[in-house]
């Protein structure tokens, strides 16, 4: 595999896409965010149990490509225990990293594996899809969100 591909499909990403974590419906969830990418049909629902401002538990369900599934899986790991404002802050850093390749080491932790996505403009939407759904969920928005406003 070439360097760019290895950077896109890092071992961590392959692992999370083959064995996604927190991949189930969440019993007792009080928030739900849906992400849909009309380009490829990728479709995820992020379930959250929020206690006040804090994400107590988070899971996801749905189908899509390796990048979108691994991203959703790692998202659930990263967001658990964070407050609404922390989730949104992290979203900004992740978004910045996926579109520019710039990694904020302190902020993104193991999500840094998605920095390689910026070299594949058509795949940024895949990687960011579940993040839009998670932000919609912490904001308490109902209904699906899509990545259509993401520029390539």
């Amino acid at each position: 595999m070439s360097d760019d591909l290895d950077e896109l499909y890092q071992q961590v990403i392959l692992d999370h896409c083959k064995t996604p974590r927190n991949f189930r419906v969440l019993e007792g969830a009080n928030r739900k965010g849906e992400g849909y990418n009309p380009l490829c049909g990728d479709n995820y629902t992020v379930f959250m149990k929020m206690d006040g401002d804090v994400v107590k538990d988070i899971t996801f369900q749905g189908s899509g490509c390796c990048i979108s599934k691994a991203s959703a899986s790692l998202l659930t790991d990263s967001v658990k225990g964070k407050s609404k404002s922390e989730v949104k802050e992290l979203f900004k850093k992740v978004h910045d990293m996926m579109t520019t390749g710039h990694v904020d080491d302190e902020g993104v932790g193991k999500l840094a594996v998605f920095a390689g996505v910026h070299k594949f403009p058509a795949r940024v939407k895949c990687a960011i899809l579940s993040w839009h759904a998670a932000v919609a969920a912490v904001d308490g928005q109902d209904g699906p969100v899509s990545t259509e406003n993401e520029s390539n």
Partner: peptide, 8 residues
Amino acid sequence: HAHDVVTV
């Protein structure tokens, strides 16, 4: 997934 096939 088809998009992974096409990317590679």
